[in-house]
């Protein structure tokens, strides 16, 4: 049996409890929270967890409104192979 964890970030196995603990420690803006708790730093880069985290932050009384609302979006929008990137144009 798997244990009844509530996984909020599947890529990095970050649980709801982890995010609450980080908020409690004072990481109340989304960027710091992400770095401490680890959500959004894996292969999907937050596609699957961001709205759930924001809902949690809004709900948590201590945090109030996060100081920075949205995470900075970085390329690539989907993972890309190094071999493709290394390709040279002909001529």
């Amino acid at each position: 049996m798997t244990t009844a964890k509530t996984i909020i970030c599947r890529c990095e196995d970050v649980t709801e409890a982890d995010v609450r603990a980080a908020l409690h420690l004072g990481f109340t803006d989304l960027e710091s929270l992400k770095r401490y708790a680890g959500f959004g730093t894996g292969p999907c880069q937050g596609k699957g967890c961001l709205s759930a985290v924001r809902a949690l932050v809004r709900e948590t009384a201590e945090a109030g409104e996060p100081t920075t609302q949205r995470l900075r979006t970085r390329p690539p929008a989907v993972p890309v192979a190094l071999g493709a990137l290394a390709g040279k144009e002909e001529g």
Partner: peptide, 30 residues
């Protein structure tokens, strides 16, 4: 800001040094 030029230059060098990296994917640049 992130650039495509960096991504391509790094990829070229990385695959030159480590040929087996061709199928490995970049997940983030900053």
């Amino acid at each position: 800001d992130s650039s495509l030029e960096f991504l391509r230059r790094f990829a070229r060098r990385a695959v030159e040094l480590f040929p087996r990296l061709a199928a490995v994917r970049v997940q983030r640049q900053w």
